[in-house]
Design a protein around this nucleic acid. Sequence first.
DNA 1: ACAATACGATACGAGTCTGTTCCGTATCGA
DNA 2: TCGATACGGAACAGACTCGTATCGTATTGT
Lengths: 207, 207
Amino acid sequence: MEPMTTVSVDEPAGQDRKAPGRPRNAQADQAIIQAVFDLLSSGQSADAVSIEAVAARAGVGKATIYRRWPNKEALLVDAVATMKGPLPEPVGESVRDDLIMLISAMRNKRMEHYGKVTMCLLPEIAKSPEMRRIYQGVIEPRRDVMRGVLRRGITSGELRADLDVELTLLMLSGPTAMQNMMHWNPQVPDDNFAERLVDAILRGAGA
Amino acid sequence: MEPMTTVSVDEPAGQDRKAPGRPRNAQADQAIIQAVFDLLSSGQSADAVSIEAVAARAGVGKATIYRRWPNKEALLVDAVATMKGPLPEPVGESVRDDLIMLISAMRNKRMEHYGKVTMCLLPEIAKSPEMRRIYQGVIEPRRDVMRGVLRRGITSGELRADLDVELTLLMLSGPTAMQNMMHWNPQVPDDNFAERLVDAILRGAGA
DNA sequence: ACAATACGATACGAGTCTGTTCCGTATCGA
DNA sequence: TCGATACGGAACAGACTCGTATCGTATTGT
């Protein structure tokens, strides 16, 4: 907030910071974040994930965590932010293939793990505006990619001209998210899920 | 762990139980359950809902709660069980109308309140098998009703003969649940949601 | 009147969690 | 070698929660 009156040692672009003393163990950062994911995906609610448990799971001391994050919320926020992987890029040949690829990208091994994590984080997301902002930052770019595919399909004539793009986005991501997070309908098999969902949406249920 | 000498909660057919002493305040039971819902829907995770907070919110003493439920989990289980309202019954004239009615039934004022509650309960449902069993008991009968409507539509010819019923159930309830719980896609308006979703599924997105 | 029970309020013990502080040790630059 | 910092481990105070117990009071049947 207020500027430092003492000699501020704001790090310049140069990475070769003075850094006297022992440098931090970069491995510890990864281990701590990974421990958060492990605990969350093993059925603990976000509230139930204690710093002590994270430290024990990561094999570090509590002080090592508090040296990096000021409190538990900051740690959780950072963990959510790292869920953001590389953006998938549609090929652009066929709308059907692009949609199948995008849905599949939500269901690879990494995301399968994140599904349970996300479910346990939902109360946090509902409660903390900061957390909601971070989470939106993960979701919205991906939704934008899919939105572009649908718009392109409309102009190319592959999709109905009067298609409701936003509703279709919901029809694609909603069932996918519910299955990822909680196997909402256990009767729907995982095999070829993306292909079957996209085809069902494209063709419709009417006779 | 002495046996309860007091009146068991579920009264047998004979209502005029002996009941010496002051009778229980039936209003308190409702107030306690309602307090649980209020706290859950105001962004508290299930773990964060403390008995003391429930007592304060309901305007009762802690002892009044522990006189009715043995522990916190039993209270939450009972709260989830009371989310089960009357089963909606399809009219049976048109599949489209029945589906719209069923989706709308998930989105009335009571369910809108329950959406946030359910989201905050998801970690509990994921963790506790008992809670999951109760929750399934609420969901499954409703899914069965919708399943019946779809099957009838196939035999009547209103729906494609090769329709994947389970996938279609997921396509109906998945987007609805995501919108109810967290307004997953804020761009999709609430007005006529059920009608627009059902029509989109029936007609399909293809040109 | 009297026993029996429920009520709201409060206090309590046992346990857990957060966030801080110290320890002895390990690892860096100078 | 020396100062500075990080490390894992442990202890700690303060706060919170659960579940029980105990107040004084209110409300019932007998």
